[in-house]
Design a protein around this nucleic acid. Sequence first.
DNA 1: AATATTGTTGCGACTATGTTGCAATAGTAC
DNA 2: GTACTATTGCAACATAGTCGCAACAATATT
Lengths: 125, 125
Amino acid sequence: MKRRKTPSKEKILAILKSQDYATSHEKIANQIDDINRATIYRILNQFCEDGIAHRIIAENGKQFFALCKDCEAEEHHHNHLHFQCNTCEKVECFESEINISLPNGYVIENFNGLINGFCNLCSSA
Amino acid sequence: MKRRKTPSKEKILAILKSQDYATSHEKIANQIDDINRATIYRILNQFCEDGIAHRIIAENGKQFFALCKDCEAEEHHHNHLHFQCNTCEKVECFESEINISLPNGYVIENFNGLINGFCNLCSSA
DNA sequence: AATATTGTTGCGACTATGTTGCAATAGTAC
DNA sequence: GTACTATTGCAACATAGTCGCAACAATATT
């Protein structure tokens, strides 16, 4: 499957780039009115497959997406924690990676770590 | 809201106790034929509220439940990692707690950390 | 023991998120 | 320009989980 460059992909990529936080499908759809729901999902999935973005599963099961930083095409560094504010619902990536040590025989493929709580803005309000 | 002791709750609690792994709603429903879907969900939610069980969100957004060990009613220790095997799909709790340090002003309420990969049984197959 | 209170259950309907099959469209390579 | 095939829109589907309501049942009260 060779990827093609399309307006839809560029648009969604631009939106992801413009966000400071991880973005839900809903939020992306709100900023777009001429791309089909299914297409947005497909493009986001493609970005994840291609290592352009990574997927975060929120506590309610919803997917959020954030661009990958410092990821080589082959080697990904997604062992960092995410934080979702229970008030403003924003999802952000924390820089520091965490060390994961597994029992013998276990092989890691992916890590999804989410902290829920109150962000600095909402906790002081 | 005072909780009442009912056969449904006892039955579900017994199932949770009998599992070595975290359990999905589906798996529970399979072992029961006389309790309504909605009731199972409500009971599981209650268990989580009451600190009897904790909820794990899998990569596909599905909920899994596991009994709390070493949890006081007031103080919970859920900063441990979970592991889901991509082959056998089992979800298990890892013992070791992880240290989470948050930026200034951030308050943690809950942590959901899931590693996906292959468990010792499936990785060697 | 009978009754009142109110938490619990089953049912059905509903919501929301995400996926898929198919035909039409549009990148890309030649 | 033409051929090839990835992409898109549409509609239908799938699934997980929730909610309102009336009937029921566990506790508390007498």
